[in-house]
């Protein structure tokens, strides 16, 4: 090839091949190829001797221009890569993401939902009753007569002399369900309750309970134990929780029982959380008292069953390790954010 032909070929080619290079390494290869010591341009320089002396200076200039054009092109290409590399170098993947999530529900609501869910899965329906109750439904029908020491267990808010009050437990819903429907029954009744307790770490004048009632022709104390132990197992999922039932007293059940769970902190050995007992009280239960059936016009010779009641805040405290009941009603964001 003549000098002129090679010149034409190289000057028409270099831009394309340099720009096709996709890394600094390849650009360097291109540089060596065109303007390296034994690159294409130098090869052409060597052919200057084949020209006439008159032509030589003009071609020399031309070739120098070509060489500087290629150099510029290569430098440009290189700087492109350098720029890109720099941007990639300063990327910080550890910066925090900018996500937003749904605010959580209140822990009491959360526990209530869990309880409802568990009992729904065990076949229980859900019933509701008023928070402003009559003394009849809250006490008398539940076998808590007037002027009886058992009423002392419930320090009551009254709205008038003695007829209307704020329910002290969710048990009156039992009565309302039995009054208005025929057996069998299989319900839970969640809701707010009120007691005239001064606010402290373990008392609140307003709190939540879930009542339960299961009545059939052969529902026994053995079923009471089965259902409630199953509940405890599902509620305290993933922890090997043991339950124990011991005799207690409620005017509306006979026999009555209290269910304890093994202390989750010491595992039953005794610690300060369980006042050295190894057990924590979870709920009260018992076989529906014949007096209650009588008040609701249900034949206790044919129907029998159990009732239970549990404190929702107490269950939340046990489940989450909350040690002060006041937190539930303070609604401090530092509390709410944790659930």
């Amino acid at each position: 090839m003549t000098l002129q032909d090679e010149y034409k070929k190289i000057s028409g080619l270099y831009r394309e091949t340099v720009n096709e290079a996709d890394s600094l390494k390849e650009v360097e290869k291109e540089r060596v190829k065109y303007i390296g010591r034994s690159g294409a341009v130098n090869e052409i320089f060597k052919k200057l001797g084949t020209l006439s002396p008159q032509e030589r200076p003009a071609w020399g200039k031309k070739l120098n221009i070509l060489k500087s054009d290629i150099t510029k092109c290569i430098e440009e290409k290189k700087s492109q890569f350098n720029k890109k590399d720099k941007a990639e170098d300063i990327f910080d993947p550890t910066l925090p993401g900018n996500f937003s999530t749904l605010p959580s529900v209140h822990p009491v609501t959360r526990i209530l939902r869990e309880i409802k869910h568990i009992f729904s899965s065990l076949g229980f329906g859900i019933a509701y009753g008023p928070e402003i109750e009559t003394a009849y439904h809250n006490f008398t029908a539940l076998n808590i007569p007037k002027d009886h020491a058992a009423r002392d267990m419930h320090d009551t808010f009254y709205l008038d002399k003695e007829k209307n009050l704020l329910r002290t437990h969710t048990s009156p819903v039992q009565v309302r369900v039995m009054e208005n429907n025929d057996p069998p029954y299989n319900i839970i009744a969640p809701g707010k309750c009120y007691r005239r307790d001064t606010i402290d770490a373990s008392h609140s004048p307003v709190f939540h309970q879930v009542e339960g009632l299961m009545v059939g022709e052969d529902i026994s104390f053995s079923d009471l134990k089965g259902v409630l132990a199953e509940f405890a197992e599902l509620f305290f999922e993933g922890t090997s929780v043991k339950t124990r039932f011991r005799p207690s007293y409620f005017p509306f059940t006979e026999p009555s029982a209290e269910m304890d769970i093994s202390c989750r902190i010491c595992g039953g050995k005794g610690c300060s959380s369980c006042s050295q007992k190894g057990w924590l009280e979870v709920l009260g239960a018992g076989m529906v008292d014949p007096e209650v059936f009588k008040h609701c016009d249900v034949d206790s010779n044919r129907w029998q069953g159990f009732a239970f009641g549990m404190g929702v805040e107490r269950l939340a405290m046990l489940k989450y390790g909350i040690n002060d009941m006041r937190f539930f009603y303070l609604n401090d964001m530092r509390f709410l954010e944790q659930f």
């Binding site: 859900i126 069998p184 009545v215 529902i219 079923d223």
Partner: peptide, 16 residues
């Protein structure tokens, strides 16, 4: 006293 799960013949008509 044994713990057992009841034979469920009871209704769920109040179920919400």
């Amino acid at each position: 006293i044994d713990a057992k799960l009841p034979n469920l013949k009871t209704g769920t008509k109040y179920f919400e």
